[in-house]
Computed example of a mutant assay.
Amino acid sequence: MSAISLSGKELAASLRARAKEAADALTAAGTPPRLAVVVATDDGSSLWYVRSIAKAAAKSGIVCDVVDLGADATVAEIRRALETLSADDTVHGVILQTPLPEGASAADLAGTIDPAKDVDGANPASLGRLAARLPAFAPATAEAVVALLDHHEVPLPGRHVVVVGRSTVVGVPAAHLLLARDATVSVCHSRTADLPGMTRRADVLVVAAGRAGLVTAGHVAPGTVVVDVGTNPAGDGGLVGDVAPEVSEVAGALTPVPGGVGPVTTALLLGHTVAAAAHLTQR
């Protein structure tokens, strides 16, 4: 029996509709929400993602400027662009797209983004506030994991959630968000001993390691809810997750790739941008 599909399309459509309604109201009041995405890469999958954000923003009444600095951009050029956008009163959300040129630190550069405009929760200050359970924008992909589980009515209090991956983009912030929902959380990574033994103990398994097919059927106990955050390029030009296809025969429920976490992430970014615009017009 195949796992139930935890699609993100219905939730994403609802979030986009809500963002558009709020964006239209702000525009009518004289403040069109504006998002800026700073890009310094020629990575194909990354550029595809940026195009998808811009397309979704346009449909939701949000102006989206892609600031393409080129793959050979210097750290100083990237920093200057982020500082300029943070100081621009007409810009309400700023995203620094990764990967970055060699020698550039995402955490260091993201620290120049005004936290009030840090709609993807990349500034270390935003991450610190998230850990302290203070108001801040969470990284959208991490928030999408919890939003998707909520949408499909997967209970979290008291459940054992295992997160595979410890990046500050997904794994660590997702763990904080899940802890805040009273889940018992274990975080695994590349140096975890006996990874399959750890993941088989999970009621809910969140896989965000960035390695195609890392989690196989042997990693999953029957009936486990599995959230696959992976978006790895496939040989046919499509995307595959971190979870192998065979897991669908063991898990109780599984997010598809594409069509699971991805569309919810983009929709949340739009919602964050609108919320930032509403807040910034009042400060």
Rank of each mutant, 00 (worst) to 15 (best):
A12R: 03
R16E: 12
A17G: 14
A17P: 02
A19V: 04
A19C: 04
K20W: 11
D24K: 09
T27R: 15
A28P: 09
T31R: 15
T31Q: 15
P32T: 05
P32M: 10
P32L: 05
P33W: 14
A36V: 06
V39M: 14
V39Y: 13
D42F: 15
D43E: 12
G44K: 05
S52C: 07
S52Q: 15
A54T: 05
A58E: 13
K59E: 15
G61W: 07
V63D: 15
T74F: 13
T74N: 09
A76R: 07
R79N: 11
L82T: 02
E83W: 00
D89G: 13
V94E: 02
P101Y: 12
S105Y: 12
A106D: 15
A106H: 15
G111Y: 12
D114Q: 05
D114G: 03
P115C: 14
K117M: 10
K117C: 03
D118Y: 09
G121E: 03
L127Q: 14
R129M: 06
L130F: 02
A131D: 06
A136N: 03
A138G: 00
A142E: 03
V145T: 00
L148Q: 03
L148F: 02
H152L: 15
E153F: 09
V154H: 10
L156W: 04
V162K: 01
V163W: 01
V163S: 09
S167P: 00
V172I: 13
P173T: 12
H176M: 14
H176K: 06
L179P: 05
A183K: 10
C188A: 15
S190T: 14
P196M: 02
P196Q: 04
M198G: 08
T199W: 05
V206F: 05
R211Y: 11
L214S: 02
V215G: 01
A217S: 14
V220M: 09
V227F: 03
A234I: 00
A234C: 06
V240D: 07
G241L: 06
D242C: 08
V243R: 03
V247Y: 00
E249V: 13
V250A: 04
V250E: 05
G252K: 02
G260D: 01
G260E: 06
T266G: 12
L268C: 04
L268W: 02
H272C: 08
L280T: 01
Q282P: 01
Q282N: 09
